[in-house]
Write a protein that binds this DNA or RNA. Sequence first.
DNA 1: CCTCACACCTGGGTGC
DNA 2: TGCACCCAGGTGTGAG
Length: 292
Amino acid sequence: MPELPEVEVVRAGLEPAIVGARITSVQVLDPRSLKRHNALRGDFVGMLTGATVLSAERRGKFMWFPLDTGDALVTHLGMSGQVLLRAVDGAPDRHLRIQLMVSHPVHGELAINFVDQRIFGSMAVDELIQQQIGKPGSPSRTVPSQAAHIALDPLDADFDDDAFVGALRKKSTGVKRALLDQNLISGIGNIYADESLWASRLHGEKPGDALSLAKARELLAEVRSVLTKALAEGGTSFDAQYVNVNGASGYFSHSLNAYGQQGKPCARCGTELRRVTFMNRGSHFCPRCQRR
DNA sequence: CCTCACACCTGGGTGC
DNA sequence: TGCACCCAGGTGTGAG
């Protein structure tokens, strides 16, 4: 269940090993992991083989790696995806779906293993497009076409606070659904949505258009705080040895106040936290602090 | 355009 | 021990 902090930890961990590397060979062990690859533009293996990686980028939960061919390798971890850096002669990983062999000028030969139990994640080669997004006056950006509809994340310097707050306060739908809407604000998943709602004392089913301006701003501030804290913890617990990059290492459960904490006392008021099913997924909240 | 239900997936856990 | 079932949830799609 990687969300923004976990994906960013993976991106940052991959960056030193993958930027400047040349892809020498590609093996697709399960074509279902290519569901976001548009084969009409070309063959996944053929478009990657021989290409050199220029940088490591992220927007929300999408990562991408621009190539010297002009396209980008796009990666989404979905629910259970991991990108593991391995020695070329390493033991095979369980649920390995795609393997890239790369040659790096400093680190030499490496295997990049895309591992994904549930196959909600994917790899793809996609075209990069130019896009105007974010606060008025923000510079134009390059983004894979398949991620063009994804909003900036709230840790991005060009994130438009006023536009988000305004749009949120026009939505009749519940505020949790709005937080999970990647077209409105990206990077938040079920865990950090529940954490942000708990921190701002909001019930997830409270309609967005019922929020005061101040409350909507407070929610955005709490979202930032929760994500920043999780990112900092992920950064510190992250093994500096890049060959151990492991996308599953996230979930800084010791700092969770709501998610998975049903039955435990609320850290604020002591009331027993509850879990209900909402939007086909678990929602965790304090029935006293977070009134509908 | 907006809202929302649902399909897509696997394997760990539970109940019988 | 085995088997059926439930559950975890990010994203894209299509219905209304």
